[in-house]
């Protein structure tokens, strides 16, 4: 759901840039206190993995493809702030180096995927995890939060499209949320596979604070 240039009008992308810049500043400030020695290479590995996985579009339905967003996966391992920064760095590199997602739309893309998808997704994960205990709880919460994060991020995208006058909300919202409800199933499966692997080999790498 990388928004290209042209989809958003200035009344939407300018505020989105400002909010995202401020939000990232807040994350950068908060993250210093939670980063530990073990998180340094983990942030590298997670960023590399999510970037690679975002290239792997899988077919969904009716000639549509989807790929991992990776926000909840990043947040489950790195915590919400480092996770959001990791996704924002991926989005920035994709925009500048690979021309994926517009430069004007980068603020909105970071807002949708880093803030709604990663930080929002993390708190969904945290709330569900407080109800279901143990490793099962971690997996169930990650799966549900992963699905929610994709649907919520795509809904954010739909709202921005409507604010820009590109597509009315009553058209864009059901269309975006509908197709991403399917893509979100892939998100849940991949997130669960990776998290269950980490739980098996290095359970201490799951963020726990």
């Amino acid at each position: 759901m990388h928004i290209p240039d042209g989809f958003l009008s200035a009344n939407t992308w300018v505020p989105a840039w400002i909010i995202s810049a401020g939000g990232l500043g807040f994350c950068l400030k908060k993250v210093g206190t939670v980063l530990k020695d073990k998180t340094v290479p983990l942030m590298g590995v997670v960023s590399a993995f999510v970037f690679a996985a975002q290239m792997l579009n899988f077919p969904v339905i009716g000639g549509t493809s989807g790929h991992l967003l990776g926000g909840v996966l990043a947040a489950v391992l790195l915590g919400p702030y480092a996770g959001a920064i990791s996704i924002a760095v991926i989005l920035t590199i994709q925009c500048i180096i690979f021309q994926d997602g517009g430069l004007t739309a980068l603020g909105a893309n970071i807002f949708n995927m880093s803030f709604i998808g990663t930080i929002g997704g993390f708190y969904a994960y945290k709330i569900i995890k407080s109800i279901v205990a143990g490793n099962t709880g971690i997996l169930v919460s990650a799966a549900i939060a992963a699905w929610l994060s994709v649907v919520a991020a795509s809904s954010g995208c739909a709202i921005e499209l409507s604010l820009s006058g590109t597509s009315p909300l009553r058209v864009a919202l059901p269309a975006m949320a509908g197709i991403h409800a399917l893509i979100g199933i892939g998100e849940s499966i991949i997130t669960c596979m990776v998290v269950s692997f980490v739980l098996k080999v290095r359970p201490d790498l799951v963020y726990n604070e």
Binding site: M55, N57, V60, S65, G66, M176
Partner: peptide, 21 residues
């Protein structure tokens, strides 16, 4: 990887605003 349009591209095609991009 699948070459099909992603969720946003597909919605943009179906709802007629793909040319804006």
């Amino acid at each position: 990887a699948s070459q099909w349009p992603d969720g946003l591209e597909k919605v943009a095609e179906d709802k007629g605003f793909i040319e804006k991009g």
